[in-house]
């Protein structure tokens, strides 16, 4: 009996090496950091992790088609400002969120026009977008942060809970499941993976690879926009100067770390969300330990590099790693 358990455990570690490390890390946090495992803290992690999840899902979509979106953080940022601005001007919750998502889609379309139709390399194109969008953010908020108050309905989106479950967790869960089903169950899901895996093969099979890319960049923009809108709800407003780079690097780390969770090393929305929650826990625990926030960028870079190293290590052929 014990032998069977040991073999099972050994196989688990072998097949789910990264997951094992994650579980071990979280166990250490639970044991050494009394506040980590408190209900309030866990709810907080879920909320913050939910926001990061949306951004990481946006990144995952474009990485799946073999693309790249450096502008997700900046789009997230400007949509936080748009949403907060519209709510404070009294446009109502629904319209504000809808416009933010639409704005995100607009930037996504801008990216895809450059990448798919003008054939600018995705990396350069979206770095350009990142700066353009950051510039637009400053033009919009004129260097002022927005502080919302007395918006119970809007705040409830990211701060509230239904039946004890944070609303944002419900939103992210629904979106993740929908994306997961679309990618696995519908033809265009498979075609997006095929486009990223070998676009020549996909084209030869009669697949419209342009359409797969359009879907990916469009989804990426919308998810970033939605993430931004919910961020405005979570922080009750918007910061004058967001941190598009930090959001970007964390989203990257989550997408790649998520891909290492399964053996084939394929990018997948479930893995991305789990990794996003893990990275949020990591940041959270470090803060609880009293570590200075100054090391956070270094920390996030390390996680990203580790995720890439683990990803390459686990794969014989670096199918989706060769995007740079």
């Amino acid at each position: 009996m014990l032998n069977v358990l040991i073999t099972a455990a050994r196989n688990f570690v072998k097949n789910y090496f990264v997951a094992t490390i994650m579980i071990a890390t979280l166990a250490v946090f639970c044991l050494t950091c009394p506040n980590f495992f408190s209900i309030n803290n866990l709810l907080d992690i879920t909320k913050q992790g939910g926001l990061l999840s949306l951004l990481a899902l946006a990144m995952t979509m474009v990485l799946i088609v073999g693309g790249m979106d450096m502008s997700v953080g900046a789009i997230y940022d400007i949509c936080t400002n748009f949403c907060a601005g519209m709510v404070i001007s009294g446009y109502g919750v629904f319209l504000s969120v809808a416009v933010s998502v639409a704005a995100g889609l607009g930037f996504g379309i801008f990216n895809m026009v450059m990448i798919v139709f003008i054939r600018v390399p995705p990396f350069i194109a979206t770095v350009g977008t990142m700066f353009v969008v950051t510039g637009l953010t400053f033009a919009y908020n004129k260097g002022q942060s927005i502080l919302l108050s007395n918006q119970p309905l809007f705040f409830s989106l990211a701060q509230g809970a239904t039946l004890g479950i944070p609303n944002i967790a419900i939103i992210v869960a629904v979106i993740t499941v929908v994306i997961y089903i679309c990618l696995r169950r519908f033809r265009y899901g498979l075609y997006m993976y095929a486009t990223g895996g070998n676009s020549m093969a996909a084209k030869a099979a009669g697949i419209n690879t342009t359409l797969s890319q359009l879907i990916a960049y469009g989804m990426s923009g919308m998810l970033s926009g939605l993430g931004g809108a919910l961020a405005a709800s979570y922080i009750s407003g918007s910061f004058a100067l967001g941190s598009p780079f930090e959001f970007l690097i964390t989203a990257f780390a989550a997408a790649f770390l998520g891909s290492t969770l399964i053996r084939q090393g394929e990018l997948n929305p479930l893995g991305t969300v789990i990794a996003a929650l893990f990275i949020t826990s990591l940041n959270n625990a470090l803060t609880l330990y009293g570590v200075s926030f100054l090391i956070l960028p270094g920390m996030q870079g390390t996680v990203l590099i580790l995720a890439l190293v683990l990803g390459n290590w686990g794969k014989k052929q670096t199918g989706q790693m060769t995007i740079f």
């Binding site: 095929a194 895996g197 093969a201």
Partner: peptide, 25 residues
């Protein structure tokens, strides 16, 4: 042969012409 390396053999065979049940693959 033009193949999608991360797909398995079956999905490479039916790439672009997946049988559907309803609208699902």
């Amino acid at each position: 042969p033009n193949l999608v390396p991360m797909f398995d053999v079956a999905h490479n065979i039916f790439l672009g012409q997946e049988p559907l049940r309803g609208r699902r693959v």
